[in-house]
Amino acid sequence: MNKEKIAFLVDSGSNVPEEIVKLGNMKVIPLKIIYNNEEFTDNVDITAQDVYDRLEEEIPKTSLPSGETITEMLEEIQSEGFEKVICVTISSGLSGTNNMVRVVAEQFKDLDIFTVDTKNIGIGSGLIAVQAYTYVAEGLDWEIIKTKLEEDVAKSKIFFHVPTLEYLQKGGRIGLVASVLGNMLNLKPIITCNEDGVYDTVAKIRGSKKSVQKAISLAVEFAGTAKKYHLAIAYGGKTAESQVAGIRAELKKQLPLFDKIYEGQISPALGVHTGPGLIGIGVCIVEP
């Protein structure tokens, strides 16, 4: 246990790298994947590929974790002797998880709970949890950690290449006309989260290969003149996974000052809304 007795609570939509979760003191709040006749727990008994394999027969819905689940996790943290908790969640502009955690946290008067609204999703949010773990491991003061994490929200970004607009449209994320016209013209949107933490289309590129390259160039632009940063490659399904090696090589070439590169499959919950083939390029600036 760290000297400050700090634990971590993150949601599954943040896609915190498994290697960080396994380091200990970190519990993952699972979102829910709901079909007409059955329900699954995000990244526990269902994968993104499982979701894709069933999309033709049914597009599931996603839901927030229950307040009871969050309460039980915080009770476990308290029983394990921790006095402080850092909660990292995906954007409050995309999910009610952040607000639910804040409401439940008010019941725990003996725990000092700090909740971070990352204004991000997927590994873009998860990279904030990586920073939180790093600060605690370095032994930084609690108040300094909180200040730095608030500042880090603006330093983390993910750019998603989305191969089809179909599932964003069906999920109400974009308009029907935009979806139809985009698919007719073979336009592939690059999506990120804006300052308010909601989806924002920052580019529309014709063709998948050029779209992925654009996502990389946007990540390079975001990193700017930073001297040190973490990178991440998130992918949805087998087809996207096959592109990771080439993307990794390109990132290393264009962003050579990286400290670590994290790679992993997106959460099933994100896959529901974006469909197969999603590729995300994430950047978290560590040193300006």
Rank of each mutant, 00 (worst) to 15 (best):
E4T: 09
E4I: 07
K5A: 02
I6K: 06
F8M: 06
D11C: 05
D11F: 02
D11Y: 01
G13Q: 02
G13E: 00
N15Q: 05
P17H: 11
P17E: 05
E18R: 09
V21A: 08
V21K: 05
K22Y: 12
I34G: 07
Y35L: 10
Y35C: 08
N36D: 14
E38A: 10
E38F: 13
N43G: 06
I46H: 00
I46P: 00
I46V: 07
V51M: 01
V51K: 01
E56Y: 13
E58W: 11
L64I: 14
S66W: 13
G67H: 09
E68A: 15
E68R: 14
I70E: 11
T71Q: 15
L74V: 13
E76R: 12
I77K: 07
G81Q: 11
C87V: 08
V88L: 01
V88D: 00
T89K: 03
S91G: 01
G93K: 01
G96M: 10
V101P: 00
E106V: 10
Q107D: 14
T115F: 03
T118S: 05
N120S: 12
G122L: 07
G126L: 02
Y133T: 10
T134M: 14
T134S: 13
V136D: 02
E138F: 06
D141L: 07
I145M: 04
T147N: 12
E150H: 09
A154C: 10
A154K: 08
K157I: 04
F160G: 03
L165W: 03
R173H: 09
A178Y: 12
A178T: 11
V180K: 12
L181M: 04
K188C: 06
P189I: 01
I190L: 09
C193D: 03
E195A: 09
D196L: 13
V198F: 03
T201I: 12
V202F: 09
V202Y: 08
V202P: 01
R206H: 13
K209S: 11
K209Y: 09
K209C: 09
S211Q: 02
K214T: 11
I216Y: 00
A223R: 03
K227A: 05
Y229G: 01
Y229Q: 01
A232I: 03
Y235F: 11
Y235V: 03
T239A: 10
E241D: 14
G246D: 14
K252D: 14
K253N: 14
L255V: 04
L255H: 07
D259R: 15
D259F: 10
K260G: 13
Q265V: 03
P268S: 07
G271I: 04
V272Q: 10
V272M: 08
T274Y: 12
G275V: 06
G277F: 12
G282K: 06
